[in-house]
Amino acid sequence: MTCLHTGTFYLGECSLERHIPVYVLVQGVLFLLIGCTLVMLLSSDKLILFFLFFCTLSIFWFCWLITGSIWVFRHYLSYHGQCHDVLYLFAFWTLIVQYIGLSIAFLASVIYCCFFCIMLWACLAVHG
């Protein structure tokens, strides 16, 4: 909800890059849709439909993350006075937090895969 509020409130407040408030606004809508889809996915019997919709939203989120990174990070040194500080710093730190979360998820997946391979190797060694 903060993304929706910030993106809407500062919609015309960034002459440096007019896409930054749009990025924040769409990011808020996207988070809202992903959250609703997750709730529906966990409580519905139409699993495949909501799973496909969730996957589509996730792919769009990843593409939007990269697009927002280009719009926000390239102006890091020159945003003062040309883009509202609250808007720019909100977009900047939202991106940083998302990259940290993505890194943690990737690291957890790698650890899980390694653990699975070790357990599979141990089972094959015992039974083989």
Rank of each mutant, 00 (worst) to 15 (best):
G101R: 14
L107N: 15
S44F: 07
T2K: 02
F53T: 10
S43P: 00
S69G: 15
F116N: 11
I20N: 00
L89D: 02
S109V: 07
G68P: 01
L89N: 04
Q98V: 11
F92W: 09
L87D: 04
I70Y: 14
S109G: 15
W93K: 02
F50N: 06
I34S: 00
C117T: 13
F51I: 05
S58N: 04
H80Y: 11
I59V: 13
F9N: 08
R74E: 11
L49D: 04
W61L: 11
L42T: 02
C113F: 15
S15E: 06
C14Q: 10
V97E: 11
V72G: 01
V39W: 13
R74Y: 05
G81W: 12
W64K: 00
M40F: 04
V26D: 02
V24E: 01
A108W: 05
G35T: 09
M40S: 08
F115A: 13
C113M: 14
F73T: 12
R74C: 05
Y112Q: 14
E13L: 13
Y79P: 01
L65Q: 02
W93S: 05
F115Y: 13
L11Y: 03
F62Y: 05
H127C: 08
R18A: 14
L124S: 06
V26S: 04
K46W: 03
W71H: 14
C114R: 15
S109N: 13
F54E: 13
T37R: 03
G28R: 04
T2I: 03
K46S: 08
S69K: 12
W93M: 11
H5Y: 06
C63E: 04
P21V: 08
C36A: 14
H19P: 04
V26P: 01
H127T: 08
S103F: 07
A108Y: 14
I48S: 10
F116P: 07
L4K: 09
H80N: 02
F116V: 15
L89H: 02
L107A: 15
F54R: 07
L25H: 07
L38P: 00
H127F: 11
T6S: 09
C117P: 02
L4H: 06
L11M: 14
L30Q: 11
F116H: 12
L16Q: 14
H19Y: 12
H5V: 09
S103L: 09
V39Y: 12
I96Q: 10
G35K: 10
S78H: 06
F53I: 10
S109K: 12
L25E: 01
G7P: 00
V22F: 00
P21G: 11
I111K: 15
G128C: 08
Y76A: 07
V126T: 13
C63H: 08
H5C: 06
G35I: 06
V29T: 05
I48G: 03
S78W: 04
V22C: 05
I104V: 15
L33I: 01
L65F: 12
T8W: 06
A91T: 10
K46C: 04
C3Q: 05
T37S: 09
I20W: 00
Y23H: 12
F116Y: 15
M40K: 03
D45K: 13
G81R: 08
S69W: 01
C55V: 02
F106K: 09
T8A: 11
I96H: 10
V97N: 12
I111H: 13
V24Q: 01
